[in-house]
Design a binder for these strands. Structure first.
Lengths: 133, 133
DNA sequence: GAAAGTGTATTATTCGACTGATACGGTTTG
DNA sequence: CAAACCGTATCAGTCGAATAATACACTTTC
């Protein structure tokens, strides 16, 4: 059973996207493997404090991406093969890092400064969690 | 007059936030300086193809952050002093980089790999701009 | 001073995200 | 078999983002 203990909801993006990314990253990291059971829609929605429909929407997307397999009546299972894992990994990496690089460049940050910030924050990722309104 | 020629709208976050961040980053980079004129609400909304109210919302936030000063009837002016610039710089840096670091850690990426990705993408920031749906 | 441009405010409307409640049919378990 | 659980679907409703259309008061410019 996939654990959502480390799932931390963040404002700014839809909840269903956050669930999708949480599972995607787990699959890439290997903490979520093929054969693992997804919590039921009702169980997970109660755990996260969101609506079952929101969880359903996330599962739908994960299914379309080849990460999850759902059979009416039974629990959904993770079915991500190595090809899918590799694809998701590239996707997330290029997208997330690309977003950061463009932002920092617009701020006039140099490559050296950018690398230093990432290197420094790697030890204290707690920073940057402040409210941003 | 502040130029919005390099403004690139991105889906995923509210338009008014994108406008705010565009100006914030310009102020940090120095491409937008104190005394610069903000385009009028109507002008900018027509240029970006959005509603005047959306631009107004962004300006309201920029004003509350001490970046912009508005006087009814006259054009809004940038009035960010060095203290504000420094504050915005720290905010954006910690927030953006922190977001990335947390995401990559969840993916099981090592510090070394993270630094390599940022270093590599610094030369080709075009990557990662694909649709993500 | 008059016209044009500007910031500000208001009301109504559309749209997607999210909630809440409920229902149906299939699977699992005892 | 029967109860409990599960995925799926639907409808109604709330909320914020964004649009659309006006209107008002002030400033700049000629």
């Amino acid at each position: 059973m996939i654990s959502f203990a480390e799932f931390v909801p963040r404002e700014g993006s839809p909840i269903y996207w956050q669930i999708v990314r949480y599972v995607q990253r787990g699959v890439v990291a290997g903490t979520i493997q093929s054969g693992d059971e997804m919590p039921s829609r009702r169980t997970l929605s109660a755990l996260l404090g969101v609506n079952p429909n929101t969880v359903q929407k996330a599962c739908r997307i994960l299914e379309e991406e080849g990460i999850l397999t759902s059979h009416t009546g039974a629990k959904s299972l993770v079915t991500a093969d190595e090809a899918v894992r590799q694809r998701i990994r590239e996707e997330l990496l290029e997208y997330d890092a690309g977003q950061l690089v463009r932002g920092l460049k617009q701020m006039g940050i140099t490559r050296q400064q950018a690398l230093e910030v990432v290197d420094r924050l790697w030890d204290r990722p707690e920073s940057g969690e402040e409210e941003r309104e």
